[in-house]
Design a protein around this nucleic acid. Sequence first.
DNA 1: AAAAATGAAAATTTCGAAATTTTTTGCAAG
DNA 2: CTTGCAAAAAATTTCGAAATTTTCATTTTT
Lengths: 225, 225
Amino acid sequence: MKTDSPAIYADLKEKLMNARFDPGEKLKPAALQGEYGCSANTVRDVLLRLTKVGLVEFEIQRGFRAQYTSPEKRNDVTRFRTMLEQEGATLSMKLGGISWEADLTAAHHKLSHLEREFERSGDLATNPENMKLWTNAEWGFHDTLISRCGSPMLRETYENVYGQFRQQMVAQERDFGRSYFSAIIAEHQAILDAALSRDVAACREAIHDHLKRNYVEVAPLEAAV
Amino acid sequence: MKTDSPAIYADLKEKLMNARFDPGEKLKPAALQGEYGCSANTVRDVLLRLTKVGLVEFEIQRGFRAQYTSPEKRNDVTRFRTMLEQEGATLSMKLGGISWEADLTAAHHKLSHLEREFERSGDLATNPENMKLWTNAEWGFHDTLISRCGSPMLRETYENVYGQFRQQMVAQERDFGRSYFSAIIAEHQAILDAALSRDVAACREAIHDHLKRNYVEVAPLEAAV
DNA sequence: AAAAATGAAAATTTCGAAATTTTTTGCAAG
DNA sequence: CTTGCAAAAAATTTCGAAATTTTCATTTTT
């Protein structure tokens, strides 16, 4: 009995965030068990825990599925993430001190360094190791932005929604060419500048601008109850 | 094998929301198993699922606990709930049509009827059946308020946070006397009026006023990273 | 006496199999 | 050819026990 469920959790989480499962794909413990050399129950246990962070859907008596995808779902995730990040950043701007400015500057420095590198070389899409570096740096910047919001619940929720955002968008097979990075670099810079100058309106706007590319057209319907 | 895990889930959820477990109390599957005539694993399964809605804390290799309580935690839940409800209500005011107005009016009617009754008779605290009635009506009103926000994620998150709010506050042993209901009735009315007249600022204010009694003084510290 | 080490008890995790439920398949009727 | 039903197959849930880890009380060492 040498199974390492934290490793299974981490591996499944990584696969889910990187869309290595199709949207809505069934996740059968009995099938996954072979991958990890453990019993089906252990996989079930892990999937139940991944349910909490929103990466896996669970329905009683009919098992687990990778989160489904749709234009509506992507819009929802994007809107919700935007809202949480705007609120978190606004609070950080009010509550954060010099240490926050230092942390945010550092996180941005790391991120922009990478992005300028990828803008030049264009070898992000091809190199999974670079993708991981960028992914971590991007997360670090956005997390630091809201880190002084003073609300653990907001921060934890943001983390989960950020993960779901990535899950939805990675499946979209976007273009990570140079023009993408040119835009992204400017957007991150705009967020940083607004945050450091404590300009709440500008920062909210910059966050919205950063995420608006992810909205897609959907037939407008009155929301259901 | 006649165990009914949905019933176990419902029962534990009810007990957690009504603070029938002490804050931070250990929830041991082997101990709870007797209550429900099932195996410890079934209880574990249920507790893992209750983790998703934030009523239960899980830490790997050291099991489950009822959510802990503290002034900071109560403030956090209150602040986060306020924020979500304000955003949800604002969106509903923008997107909701006549059917929303009808639903909201109906939900408020049901709620205020009960509250006026309890204001007169004062027999809420003593009668658990009445408490349940009020609890459901209160939830119905607030859920309807945000029901047209157009964001399933916001709405689901609000539901979880509302449950955690109740979990925290019920443990506080508050005074449900007549004066409490006098205040509550006016607050719900103010929310309804502002919502129906699509007055965003007034509605946000009314939501804040409704929840502000739950804030407690806490030594101000710069938020940790 | 305080701290570290030891060992027993308790709790958590994992397992493989049995019981239950859902889904699929095959066949017959309209 | 489609629909409805029954049987088989597959998947999920539940179980009780074994393996592992944590917790707690006790003893040993500094």
